[in-house]
Design a protein around this nucleic acid. Structure first.
Lengths: 334, 334
DNA sequence: CCTCCTCGAAAAAACGCTTTCTCGCCTAGT
DNA sequence: ACTAGGCGAGAAAGCGTTTTTTCGAGGAGG
């Protein structure tokens, strides 16, 4: 009310204020060179005086693109997805794109509708759905147009970025073996997860290569509490080395072990996975495989941007996590 | 190409397929009761067969609302903002709203343009800008329509949700005092931050109440590295109790102290702030003030939703963090 | 039996923009 | 000097909806 524009100025206001047609304003604002320099200046000042900016909505409708991509993650509370989101968001912003975010709160059945719905308001979808069944995923993909998969791959037709969970877990297992551990247990996260099956086959290879090792599996979740709650089961296996599904599980486990007076790594060695920022601040600091989640996010954007720009090469990328040795692993007891 | 709709069906397709006018289709889809039941059914089956859903874009344009809110945060890597975002995102989703997210990457000058730009694509803005100067904020607010402030309040005209940093920090200081600490140091985060000034005045009161205490201040950042890099300066003060700006700073500090052979809490007691999920897994577990960030996010949505629904009561909410005592604090040495 | 009212559905305007199409005018070529 | 060729700008046709307005038919009342 005070001064000037109560409501946002629209293109006709600018046109009237500059004494030209609205088509001319549009041409000026979009840098179309076919307009006289003097006139263009007049239009620009008029626009500036009115504080005019084209309505993104109207623009999106006619242009058919929203300058926005959707990201669907299973849990915004998970540090790995947070890092992916951060890397993605910044990379997209650098290219002038916005990010619409959806958190399925681990409800696998929500993911489908979330993906479809957010996709309709955006130009593309970045999908993190590690637990969605393969056939569901396959049937979903055609519906959600340009899509990039994170930490999951279907086939070569759809670009995906992810970490090589199998190789890294194998390296961690070898590390424990080198330290003399012969009785190991793997905490298997969610069994239907995509990265879990990669790890399972890596462990199968490891078993084949080391017949002297006894390697069992224990079902667990993917968070602190899951790790803590399997502590007794872990002790029951009498294993001296534990390969946790991820850092969260490892931390929960170590906390529960400490409560029981079990020393890490003197009594039991523990490895994590992901190298979340806090892994180096646990007690003891966690040996883990460093998944560059933020880079993964940036890479996902790169693939999406390539697709959006028409250059649909966008090959899938697979990064091998680097194993970082800290003090949660040590020589096997005795 | 395979079968059916290559492109997304639009309302005219449904109209033709059902043999009615497009206005009728619109009425049916929006539950307008003035359409004959039999006809409505016919339209609905036609829509189902074509897999029709109204274009959110076109809908937004004519309706003047996008069913989306924007969230601007200074750093998606910060656990506190992550939690706010998570709480907000889930609460908004429950009410059928989407969330557009923007990360200013700690660039204060970016925040303004980010806020304005994202706001134009959405119905409202949730702004976390702890470091934006007051006058900038005041000049920005009128431009970004319905807005809810997080962890920062300007005046009563704009709804805000936040934690009472002052009171909680005062409680932490009293806790150290009770333990016999008489030489304290406060690690002051970013000096221009809004919550920092709240803490500063709380500390002033604390000083006034305890003339026997020597309380100094040390500039620091807001993350791990900041905490680690002030370790020597902290030791130089010969303080026995440290009030860190947040958990991240506290963790960085404790890590650097451990490297120097300084024992916590035997030699120095350390408190954090926020109670991020990892605070209880540090070594030793961190005494801190628990800021319910996810609830704050949900509350922010509640306020926004109230405003969006016209019931513009939306009073500001201020939660007092609960102090949680762990083992990073102990009796003063000697 | 004709008219008035009502109810259901079609037509049309609006949302704010981009872009093609079209037309007028100025310059240059002969 | 007259016309072909450009170039710059206005008019208009969408983009896919919602919503108001208008219209037609059918039933009831006179």
């Amino acid at each position: 009310m005070a001064r000037g524009s109560a409501k946002q100025a629209k293109i006709t206001d600018v046109a009237r204020h500059a004494g030209v047609s609205l088509s001319t304003v549009s041409r000026v604002m979009n840098g179309n060179p076919s307009v006289d320099a003097a006139l263009a200046d007049r239009v620009r000042t008029a626009a500036a005086e009115l504080g005019y900016t084209a309505s993104p909505l109207a623009r999106s409708l006619v242009l058919g693109r929203t300058q926005t991509v959707a990201v669907v993650v299973p849990d915004l509370g998970n540090p790995t997805f947070q890092a992916v989101l951060r890397g993605l968001s910044r990379a997209a912003a650098a290219d002038g794109y916005h990010v619409l975010i959806a958190d399925s709160a681990e409800q696998v059945d929500e993911e489908r509708v979330l993906a479809i719905e957010t996709r309709r308001r955006t130009d593309g979808l970045i999908l993190c759905a590690p637990r969605m069944p393969g056939e569901d995923l396959a049937s979903l993909l055609p519906l959600v147009g340009p899509v990039v998969l994170v930490n999951r791959l279907l086939d070569d037709s759809v670009p995906a970025v992810g970490a090589d969970y199998g190789t890294a877990l194998r390296t961690l297992a070898e590390h424990l073996h080198d330290l003399g551990h012969r009785r190991l247990v793997y905490l298997a996260g969610v069994s239907r997860s995509a990265s879990n099956s990669a790890r399972l086959s890596a462990l199968a290879e490891f078993r084949a290569a080391h017949p002297d090792v006894e390697l069992s599996e224990l079902a667990s979740g993917v968070d602190f509490d899951s790790g803590a709650s399997v502590a007794d089961a872990v002790l029951a296996t009498r294993a001296t080395g534990v390969l946790a599904f991820n850092d969260l599980v490892a931390m929960g486990l170590m906390s529960a072990l400490a409560d029981r007076g079990v020393r890490v790594p003197a009594d039991i060695s523990v490895t994590g996975f992901d190298d979340i920022p806090f892994a180096r601040y646990t007690s003891p600091p966690l040996t883990t495989a460093s998944v560059p989640a933020a880079e993964l996010g940036a890479l996902a954007w790169q693939a999406m941007n390539a697709t959006l720009s028409g250059q649909d090469a966008a090959a899938s990328v697979r990064l091998t996590p680097e194993v970082v040795l800290r003090s949660s692993t040590g020589p096997a007891p005795d």
